[in-house]
């Protein structure tokens, strides 16, 4: 059918091409899901523990409590998550560009 013919402008990609793009989308979605979950799992215990327990109250030294240390660590962890995503996303961009080139 012309609608499925990859040679026809505006047509749906053929089955193998759809699998390539579906695969790329799935990989990106899994990466996003994993990093988002890890980021939230690392951050939200801070306000929960700080608000409902005294686990973070201890002074480690020089006036720094575990709360302050945990809060400061949020920043390099955020940078790490962003950097990790950036590297993987660039790889997926290259794969995506390749797939589009092969399609055309």
């Amino acid at each position: 059918m012309p609608h499925d013919d990859p040679g026809v402008p505006g047509a749906e990609p053929a089955e193998t091409e759809r699998n390539v793009f579906d695969d790329l989308v799935r990989k990106r979605t899994r990466l996003v899901g994993k990093l988002s979950a890890l980021t939230c799992l690392f951050f939200f215990p801070l306000p929960i523990l700080g608000q409902f327990t005294d686990v973070l109250d201890g002074v480690v030294g020089s006036g720094l409590t575990w709360a302050w240390i945990y809060a400061f660590v949020q920043f390099p962890v955020a940078l790490f998550a962003a950097a990790r995503y950036s590297v993987r996303a660039r790889e997926l961009d290259r794969a995506s560009e390749q797939a589009w080139k092969e399609r055309s």
Binding site: T39, F43, Q74, F75, A78, A81
Partner: peptide
């Protein structure tokens, strides 16, 4: 608390 959420929020925005 009014500051520490910001990098987390923008990582989620990025992702």
């Amino acid at each position: 608390y009014l500051a520490v959420f910001v990098p987390v929020a923008y990582v989620l925005a990025l992702l």
